[in-house]
Design a protein around this nucleic acid. Sequence first.
DNA 1: GATATTAATGAAAATGGTTTCTATTAACAA
DNA 2: TTGTTAATAGAAACCATTTTCATTAATATC
Lengths: 158, 158
Amino acid sequence: MPRGRESWKQQPWWYGRFRGCGYRLTVPREVILGVLSKTSGHLSAEDIYLAVHKVYPAIGLTTIYRTLELLVQMGLVFKFNFGDKRARYELAEGSKGIRHHHHLVCTHCGKVMDYTDFIDEEVELLNQIEKGLSKKFNFKITNHLIQFYGLCEKCQEK
Amino acid sequence: MPRGRESWKQQPWWYGRFRGCGYRLTVPREVILGVLSKTSGHLSAEDIYLAVHKVYPAIGLTTIYRTLELLVQMGLVFKFNFGDKRARYELAEGSKGIRHHHHLVCTHCGKVMDYTDFIDEEVELLNQIEKGLSKKFNFKITNHLIQFYGLCEKCQEK
DNA sequence: GATATTAATGAAAATGGTTTCTATTAACAA
DNA sequence: TTGTTAATAGAAACCATTTTCATTAATATC
């Protein structure tokens, strides 16, 4: 492993989350989280594999999938499905710089855009809806998914 | 085909949509739409296949997939993904009795519930948001997906 | 109503993203 | 430093969905 043990000293933000769950801090996990935080979102498992592979060719695709599953389950990463058959992953909010957002998906070319400019009304209504649903269905809401589908600028021209 | 040609006389509601697109009216298509409209939503391709198979064993799974794809593309059917890997299909609003709705998905047992009690505020805000997004991103919105994830009543108890 | 055209179908095979299996490696507690 | 055991890599399996191709049947035309 081409990293000194000392570099753990400046522990990354997810260090505690891992230790708290009894999970080990491994190089693949660190590298995968690194790729996710450096690259702008919507990455497929293969995208991540290729990026990781450039630096650590020994890390296999299986580990990418396993690690992503773990990260999703830990709540550090969100998994999305935009209509093509591969799943997409992106870092959850919490690490600096990433905010909660929804997606605009072009049904023609597959382009995905982030939508972060929530208006206050919107956030409040969403909370209200979630509260209402929780009560009515006795359903404990932990998350929501909002996506808008349509045609992006370029695809409209055709 | 065990149906007289006369029965087309009381043309089903989708008749015009098919003819308008130049698509043929076939028994498999009729049967599949029949299953979708008789059964309550969230059916997988296999669910539909099994239901169809009981009455018309000659209709194959391939045709189910092909027909569903066509129906989705025509806008008669919506395709969903609830986290397990199989796609789910349900009739779009338009045929009597089916209203636009969103979904509550239990991340533990996979149960899916429909949420139809939109408040006026909600519908209006959604329109407003879509209008804003269309303008800001020059994106022509044709559809949206809203799902809430969490734990259903039973799964909370455990 | 009979017939030609060609879209639609069924069965089997292929595809491809994801998961499982198993022997090996490495994180970390002692 | 060493033992325990979680984590990993690579190959094989999995399985929902798609493709291929020969056959069938819906519709337009005669």
